[in-house]
């Protein structure tokens, strides 16, 4: 059974907290994601995402606070703008943009976080392993 590998960039204040809450609530989800904590989702550089794919990630998740909730006032808006560009960029590189996800999870949304990881894992399973430079 193919198990996709996902890197998750989680912002410290909302989505990392949501992942913690999923834990304290014992909400079960697939174990395919490995989290990298960043202070703000806007810290995630397009280069980090590409590097993740080059280093064997089948999917990359960026998760931040809901629009308007950003701990740093407006960081997540910047993330959103970058995300749009990044998806285009991925397509140019021949990577299916569905492999990159941007999600907002508040610190009260443990359930949503688990659902996002579950859905993403499922979707990546249908997409199959990433093959860089081979039309994926």
């Amino acid at each position: 059974m193919y198990e996709p590998k996902i890197i998750g960039f989680l912002c410290n204040w909302c989505s990392y907290a949501a992942a913690d809450l999923a834990g304290t609530s014992r909400i079960q989800y697939p174990s395919n994601m490995r989290a990298i904590r960043v202070m703000c989702s806007s810290r995630v550089d397009p280069e980090h995402v590409l590097r993740a794919f080059v280093n064997g990630a089948d999917g990359v998740l960026i998760a931040g606070c809901h629009p308007g909730d950003c701990h740093y006032i407006s960081g997540n808006y910047k993330t959103e703008r970058k995300y749009v560009l990044l998806r285009e960029m991925l397509e140019q590189f021949g990577i299916d943009p569905r492999r990159l996800r941007l999600e907002w999870c508040s610190s009260a949304e443990g359930g949503k976080f688990a659902q996002v990881v579950t859905e993403m894992t499922e979707e990546l399973k249908t997409l199959g392993p990433i093959e860089l430079g081979a039309g994926d």
């Binding site: 992942a19 913690d20 999923a22 834990g23 304290t24 014992r26 909400i27 079960q28 989800y29 697939p30 174990s31 989290a35 688990a114």
Partner: peptide
């Protein structure tokens, strides 16, 4: 690194994968 809230507690049924 968080191997409880984001690992053991959320992958209780798949100890090897956890």
């Amino acid at each position: 690194t968080n191997i409880r809230d984001q690992c053991s507690w959320v992958h209780m049924h798949t100890p090897e994968e956890a």
